[in-house]
């Protein structure tokens, strides 16, 4: 074998080993590759120097654990996203019996909530169980069906109006009579009246018609349903 061929082969071997050095220092090479590197580096100063530099680079890349605290906050965001997605598309492909058991951190809270709910129901049921009429009255006073208007919610037929040029009581009476209305509150310091159109059986359409009629009256400068004006329970000022 000629010296030229040996040089070429040696150069090829040098290049191949040089390419493998990063993976030698990260300990991922298999046994054959490791031996190949070791054998070459024993006789190659260039690769030996490069190996030391690779070692320094490798150690520089080892990082700290500063990210741990960030990971917890970020995971909370991901969990929200998964839970939000599970509402839209239940986890039917996963063989999990219920949502509540997915994330164990929510289990103790769920137990407490269910226990508290059971205790509340028991307390509510006690007067009925003991046949105490007085207590029963107190309970039924708090009872409300879904069809019942929420507490403090203004009736659907309450309207606030403001008259122009302070008409006298006779004029006001005539205007309200034209829409089957009566004053239930007012006037306020700002001249606002709250009136009731008809009674509780009056249909919303009839109330709307009354409002439209009032607005066409030149002596009325403002007429609006109470329900859309302010939160429930607030008086006119």
């Amino acid at each position: 074998m000629s010296s030229t061929m040996i040089n070429v082969m040696g150069k090829n071997e040098h290049q191949k080993v040089w390419n493998l050095l990063p993976w030698y220092v990260n300990h991922s090479l298999d046994a054959v590759e490791k031996d190949r590197v070791r054998n070459h580096v024993r006789t190659c100063i260039a690769c030996r120097i490069e190996l030391q530099q690779q070692q320094q680079l490798f150690e520089e890349m080892q990082q700290t654990d500063l990210l741990r605290q960030v990971s917890q906050a970020a995971f909370a965001q991901l969990r929200k996203r998964i839970e939000r997605q599970s509402i839209i598309r239940p986890f039917t492909q996963h063989n999990q019996p219920s949502e509540a058991s997915k994330f164990p951190s929510s289990q103790p809270l769920g137990f407490v909530k269910h226990t508290a709910l059971a205790a509340s129901l028991l307390l509510l049921a006690m007067p009925f169980m003991l046949h105490l009429p007085a207590e029963q009255t107190a309970v039924t006073a708090e009872y409300r069906t879904l069809a019942t208007a929420p507490e403090n919610t203004p009736a659907h037929n309450r309207v606030r109006i403001v008259f122009a040029d302070q008409p006298d009581s006779k004029q006001i009476g005539a205007i309200l009579h034209s829409v089957s209305g009566r004053i239930v509150q007012g006037p306020s310091e700002n001249g606002i009246y709250e009136i009731q159109i008809g009674n509780r059986h009056t249909r919303p359409q009839e109330v709307d018609d009354a409002i439209a009629y009032l607005r066409n009256n030149t002596q009325v400068i403002f007429a609006e349903l109470v329900q859309g004006l302010q939160p429930a329970g607030q008086d006119i000022r």
Partner: peptide, 22 residues
């Protein structure tokens, strides 16, 4: 995680967070 175990998934997440971050 494939079985829907959120705790296992969280462990996997914490194991990989640093690696993925860098």
């Amino acid at each position: 995680t494939a079985g829907g175990n959120g705790k296992a998934f969280e462990q996997l997440y914490q194991r990989y967070f640093d690696r993925l971050y860098q």
